[in-house]
Design a protein around this nucleic acid. Sequence first.
DNA 1: CCGGAAAATGAAAGGTCCTTGCAATGTCAG
DNA 2: CTGACATTGCAAGGACCTTTCATTTTCCGG
Lengths: 154, 154
Amino acid sequence: MHDVDTIDIAILKTLQREGRISNAALAERVGLSASACSRRLDHLEKSGVIKGYHARLAHKALDYRMIAIVNISLSGQFAKTLAEFEAAVKLCPNVLVCYLMSGEYDYTLRIAARDLEDYERIHRDWLSALPHVVKINSSFALREVIDRPNVGLG
Amino acid sequence: MHDVDTIDIAILKTLQREGRISNAALAERVGLSASACSRRLDHLEKSGVIKGYHARLAHKALDYRMIAIVNISLSGQFAKTLAEFEAAVKLCPNVLVCYLMSGEYDYTLRIAARDLEDYERIHRDWLSALPHVVKINSSFALREVIDRPNVGLG
DNA sequence: CCGGAAAATGAAAGGTCCTTGCAATGTCAG
DNA sequence: CTGACATTGCAAGGACCTTTCATTTTCCGG
């Protein structure tokens, strides 16, 4: 029914990079008429291939100037242990990213804070309260060198 | 000049969730006329508060399913050393994020790869070729627990 | 290879949306 | 208070979006 063909791929790649491009410009970019492009885009959205559109904001401009990378080890890898930790970490609004990891630590977190004082509060109120934690290692980002939304894009 | 005020915050939060909302709907959402809203949006984009708009695609449409966290130490912290490393790392399209860090390692990278074979290629062709590197430590994300674009939002 | 149904397309149209000019209002420092 | 500048709403013209419709393409069963 809805095969994702070459033109769809071109549409998706364009929208991945320029999510707010006009339908007219998008149509020209992929070599379709505006009406055909509009209908394909409608299909891609309604079929769930495109899950949403989002503005990417500068953390700095929103007064979250500090990024911390926090590595955490738990007391075990039982499913219940992981689930309880993850449920708790999801509640902290300052956690931007959290991955279950291979290697020395079990989880890697990326945390946004306004300043050092704010980070101290987050550490005290949130990180210290996470269950099953046996080791925490925090590092701070001194400067953002690269921040790309997707592979191969500016 | 131009503080990010309450209305700007409302605009940003809306665009965070609905990056392709029309300017007219956005204006009504935040209680402004369309023209005023359009001008504020223009300013937020040009001043760099909004770094871009991006479509979020379904996993079946995404080619890059593997995330690696790579920590790197350099042979020194001279400005020239850092600049040369950063210029080189910026050329690798698979690097999504790169921070200059405090702590044990100098840089933390987040890398997207199609699969393990693809990561091996990236490591061989790009990471091994980065200048001034004295230590590399790779970990792989087993599962994405949280991935938020910004603080306190979906 | 053929025929027909389903899907996709481009052109056109009307309705909506976006941006720019303009006058008025709001803000702030001197 | 005054002047300079930022911000606003309104209006208009131009751009854009979506729907309709006739046509073309695609895809199977026969």
